[in-house]
């Protein structure tokens, strides 16, 4: 193979990628917080006394789990403003698409974690007169979260990678900035290799951190 590698333009334009990386991280953090937070709310909604609340939570999960994130982002960006008098920028559309999809998946993870706690834990907590909300907060969730840390980590990694989908509405993140460089210098091989490497370098330390967290949490019930 006689290929002329052309990495130089990428390094010369490192600021372009840096801006993209900031955009990726910003989107990731916001979607992580909303996705997991709303996921917990929806999981609790599925156990609510009120039937409509249970139904609504269930419908939310099914709708957002069974539609592609890419379509959701496009829908929020192009379709929603037609239906409702709102202005939706690329950033908001991406947040909505990725967060709601992640919330649907996290809700299922939380639900599984909550269900995996032995009924005896509920009974012991109820027997010392705790209210259902207190039992959930003090006894069930702390144990459930420990069990689902690996699954939530996977979700987090997915969210990070899903951030690239925001490039479809031209949100400024890593992939979008890479495309920009590649379109100017005609070096897609180099650009996408670097983009992949950057994702790995950003993501891997985060994942390592959660491994450490897992070990810490496991210590108490050893």
């Amino acid at each position: 193979m006689n290929y002329n590698w052309s990495f130089a333009p990428i390094f010369e334009n490192w600021q372009v990628l840096a801006i993209g990386a900031v955009g990726t991280l910003r989107l990731f953090v916001i979607c992580l917080v909303i996705g997991m937070g709303l996921g917990l709310v929806v999981a609790l909604g599925r156990r609510a006394e009120a039937r409509p609340l249970r139904w609504l939570s269930r419908a939310f999960v099914e709708v957002f789990r069974n539609t592609p994130v890419l379509v959701q982002i496009l829908w929020f960006y192009y379709a929603l403003p037609i239906l409702a008098p709102v202005e939706i920028g690329p950033f908001t559309a991406a947040i909505l698409g990725i967060s709601l999809n992640s919330a649907a998946y996290s809700a299922e993870i939380f639900r599984g974690g909550i269900q995996s706690i032995e009924p005896g834990q509920w009974e012991a907590a109820r027997a010392i007169a705790m209210t259902p909300a207190q039992v959930m907060r003090r006894v069930i969730l702390p144990q459930a979260v420990r069990r689902i840390v690996p699954a939530l980590t996977n979700r987090g990694v997915e969210i990070f990678k899903m951030s690239t989908l925001a490039s479809v509405v031209a949100y400024v993140e890593l992939l979008n900035q890479g495309k920009l460089i590649a379109s100017i210098y005609f070096n897609p091989l180099e650009v996408y290799t670097i983009i992949a490497a950057l994702f790995f370098l950003l993501l891997y330390p985060i994942v390592r951190l959660t491994y450490a967290l897992e070990r810490r949490l496991a210590r108490s019930d050893a």
Binding site: E123, A127, A129, T131, S220, D221
Partner: peptide, 20 residues
């Protein structure tokens, strides 16, 4: 429920301690 359970303490066969 609360009032009753404050007056009647329960000890279970399987202990059911909070492991965390």
């Amino acid at each position: 429920l609360q009032a009753l359970r404050l007056r009647a303490g329960m000890v279970f066969q399987q202990f059911n301690l909070f492991p965390h």
